[in-house]
Nucleic acid binder design. Structure first.
Lengths: 244, 244
DNA sequence: GGCGAATGTTAGGCTATCCTAATATCAGGA
DNA sequence: TCCTGATATTAGGATAGCCTAACATTCGCC
């Protein structure tokens, strides 16, 4: 729906200018993808916040990215990735998540530290390396935080999950994903055994944004709604699920 | 974990500027170390050639590095690493060689491709990652090309080896190291079984820089002196003498 | 012992990316 | 409709690295 006009030669999706993206450019594309879920218009200020840059810097960069055909941009109207930009973003996301998975599985990195390391390596690792890493650990489909890994072909599971905060009392669910960018929070979640794959049941929800009480891994505990909102879950079939 | 240990250095090497080195700066320091074997004055033009930059660029950069205390520099007189610079260089070299080894051992990278990948990763990998990689493959002491790996403490075996071109006819030797920056040459050496650890005997040396005939892995072959100069060997104690 | 070739440096410019400060546009309430 | 706060952009400048072209220094040689 939005492939922009590309004037000169028809050489765009073949091989060349893909790997010439700089680290910062990859970061912008990834941020835009993650904010907009891939195909929604994104505010420049949100990009600035996500990347910890000033809005002015983003305005400038976004103009250049548009000139390169990586996104479409109308002043004061936000930006949207083009197909080319989206592919580049997904390639970077794949690198990041494969690297995280590899560090975790093959090198026993603690899950609260894989993100920062991957953040730097994702710009330096070749596709070949990333693919070898993926193969070495059995082609994982999610990273250590449960985030889906785009395929080599650039396809990613876009399922939107319920957050634990939205789950009603009495419901059982399996943790599918947790937010990955706060190491401290990750350590805490790990201590609580709130990790992807874990099953839980919501025992009670205090009103007015009160704490949520749940049983997980045989333990009963309470967490605040802000934390619960960072935990994505897949409800289990029955409201009266067997909590084992 | 480290306090300065060398005696005659009391400048500011305490906390900050260690990890703040940029990729290009690390490349300069590494190149200077490798050209000068660590403590010899190095010509700016040689640095330029090694890094494929113009001499002018090197003059400028070298001035900045001197201002940062990473090397000492006198115009028209070449450059020498300071202790700080040497430590930084060795850290980068360690990263590079550990990464090469890891790629080769753990991910089955072919030996002619590890160099380029490591060249990019060495600037992005943390010390923790590098140390985990080293541990995972048994703390290797040489990289896949036979080059020594500096220890975590920054010490490296500085033994200077004989090249195959310098070995007299009739002498036996073990290959200890080959030059690592030409993939094509590495593939060729691999085909000939000229790899670190292999034993060979020089059968004949044609005069006037003529070809060198040798037996290796049960095969007789001839190589030119330019190639032989890229192969470092340890003579075997064949007639009488033990190695030095 | 001076001169030209070899070597090395400075001058001036370019790109990418970031910043701060000033300005422009948009959108919602009276 | 108009105003104002929120949002976004431009203007102008900094830094790191790189380049080419012009200039400076050193050195080897007769």
């Amino acid at each position: 729906m939005k492939t922009p006009k590309r004037s000169h030669l028809h050489l765009e999706d073949s091989p060349p200018e893909e790997d010439t993206l700089t680290g910062p450019v990859e970061d912008y594309l990834k941020a835009i993808y993650e904010i907009g879920r891939g195909n929604v218009s994104v505010a420049t200020n949100d990009i600035a916040q996500k990347l910890s840059l000033t809005a002015a810097s983003v305005s400038g960069m976004v103009r250049r990215l548009a000139a390169q055909g990586l996104l479409s941009y109308e002043r004061y109207r936000g930006v949207m990735l083009t197909d080319t930009g989206r592919r580049a973003a997904l390639r970077t996301i794949r690198r990041h998540r494969v690297i995280e998975s590899y560090l975790s599985h093959a090198l026993e990195y603690p899950w609260d530290r894989v993100h920062d390391e991957a953040e730097r390596l994702e710009h330096a690792a070749s596709d070949e390396l990333v693919n070898r890493m993926a193969a070495a650990i059995g082609e994982p489909v999610v990273d250590p935080h449960g985030a889906p890994i785009p395929s080599r072909e650039g396809l990613m599971d876009e399922t939107v999950h319920l957050s634990l905060a939205e789950l009603g009392a009495g419901f059982g669910a399996r943790v599918v994903q947790v937010s990955d960018d706060d190491p401290e929070m990750l350590r805490y979640l790990g201590e609580l055994a709130i990790v992807p794959g874990a099953e839980l049941i919501v025992l009670a929800k205090a009103p007015y944004d009160g704490p949520i009480t749940l049983r997980i891994a045989g333990t009963k505990l309470s967490i605040g709604p802000a934390l619960a909102a960072q935990v994505m879950v897949q409800p289990l079939s029955d409201p009266d699920a067997p909590s084992h």
